[in-house]
Amino acid sequence: MDIPRDKLLEIYERMVTIRQFEDRTHGEYAAGRIPGFVHLYAGEEAVAVGVCAHLSDDDAITSTHRGHGHRIAKGVDVNAMMAELYGRATGACKGKGGSMHIADISRGMLGANGIVGAGVPLACGAALSAQVRGTEAVAVSFFGDGGANQGTFHEGLNLAAIWKLPVLFVAENNGYAQSTSVSYAAGGADIARRAQAYGIPGVVADGLDLFDVYAKAGTAIAAARAGDGPTLLECKTYRLYGHYEGDTQGYRSKAEIDRYRHEHCAIRRFRARVTQDGLLTADELDAIDARVDNAIDAAVAFAANSPFPDPAEVTTDVYVNYEEEIA
């Protein structure tokens, strides 16, 4: 599957934006400037970007507690996102959601989700909506190897299979659900093989290879748009930071992490491929790096200089309308 040059540039920019956003968030969190729980997506960029490169704002995605990457891959700006992490009024969710609930409904990003596996039925609903309304839209549900062990995975895949819903299920298998290895927690070899039980295609992609994810997601999404129903796409990937910021990571070695940060880095692999094949130049890529660096600086400054929400905001946005005042 050839990727147009403009698309390649956009793909690289989004991958680098995710990496830099997460690296900066790691530092900002360590410095005590970001409250709460934060789960970083760095390392898995090829999955979110390789899938979302096929989507428009009309297409919906559901995400995980590790949702920053999905949101950036969907093309949503980083200022409102960083401000949300900072808990500011200018945040994407006005400071009410934070890292684990970052969303942008207008761009089809139906939210990061603090409950593992919970996005699967929601994505089925977005696909059902597209099917009933007769649009060309599809839905994508991202979840982890941990999410694949939830009941919602089974219920969602079965529902999508029997109704031929236009949905792609993306299992981001990064090897660990919190501290527990997938080799311990999952029965059977590949999560993708579970698709057979529902009579839908199950495909494994190298989640560190943008081109492999892009090609396989493209086939699955085209099938969904054509009315051929859902696909389960398992992307074997790796997260470079801990499960959450503050995770001491006693369950994996520094050597393993370093190997993925350097030898198997999805962004390095992408750079090597596009420059070797003469698709993009190192100068072009470096220019993107610099631009993204500036954009992340600006996002941090925007967040840090934004006001906190007015305490009166605590009782707004619970309902669209409610006759009684919420005390």
Binding site: L122, V132, A139, G156, L159
Partner: peptide, 20 residues
């Protein structure tokens, strides 16, 4: 629907957020 309450109630919610 199948007997799959988490699946179809969740799908109803997802559909509600996206126009139904």
């Amino acid at each position: 629907t199948p007997i799959s309450e988490a699946g179809f109630i969740g799908a109803a919610i997802g559909a509600a957020v996206t126009g139904l």
